[in-house]
């Protein structure tokens, strides 16, 4: 089976330690997490993880089941790139002097969809939002002029076919009482049984 990029979307409770619980599912299997984002979701109190890995579908399916098995996880979905809308945000810091004299800033803005975030005497910060290729392209353009700092965010993704999580959560909140444990009738007679 073919390896490809998958985005795993996990709806969770907001619980300390859960990030670790999810992260070790990947590290235990020596799978590299390419990007990981945690954020609020469409529902107050429910957290949403976006995790990007490159693996075969079979592996990703098993990983999702392992993630869903965690007590504080509500639901895990996986999608390939065709099934989602996603964006990443990148920030680029370059010297204002160089930019002002050598770069056609208006071209940057129009051709690469860049925005100017900050302009100071000493440096300027641009931002680009988009797919990996788009943020990568601007690195190539700016590198010759001395890119002082670069950073890119994790991927955030929306599932095209999803109707959101509200209905599922209502199902999950439906109380189904568990049955009681069958008792061991002999446990009450311990004094009679012990003594060496």
């Amino acid at each position: 089976m073919l390896q490809q990029e998958y985005t795993i979307t996990v709806y969770t409770e907001n619980q300390i330690g859960l990030l670790n619980r999810i992260a070790i599912i990947f590290s235990r299997r020596k799978i590299n997490v390419e990007s990981l984002n945690t954020s609020p979701s469409e529902i107050d109190s429910v957290h949403r993880f976006n995790i990007v890995i490159t693996e075969t579908e079979e592996v990703v399916r098993k990983l999702c089941r392992q993630i869903e098995k965690q007590v504080d996880v509500l639901k895990a979905y996986y999608n390939n790139n065709e099934e989602i809308v996603w964006q990443e945000l990148a920030l680029y810091k370059v010297s204002t002097d160089v930019i002002a004299t050598e770069v056609k800033v208006e071209r940057l803005l129009s051709q690469y969809g860049a925005r100017v975030v900050v302009i100071r005497k000493d440096y300027t910060v641009f931002s680009v939002t988009g797919h990996r290729e788009e943020t990568d392209r601007l690195i190539q353009v700016l590198e010759p002029y001395g890119l002082i700092e670069f950073v890119r965010s994790a991927r955030v993704a929306i599932i095209k076919s999803s109707e959101g999580f509200h209905r599922k959560l209502t199902q999950f909140e439906y109380r189904e009482p568990a049955s009681d444990v069958v008792e061991n009738e002999f446990l009450n007679q311990q004094e009679k049984v012990f003594s060496m």
Binding site: D72, F172, R175
Partner: peptide, 9 residues
Amino acid sequence: CKHIRSYRP
């Protein structure tokens, strides 16, 4: 406890 919304036994 008899129910946790994120947990399906």
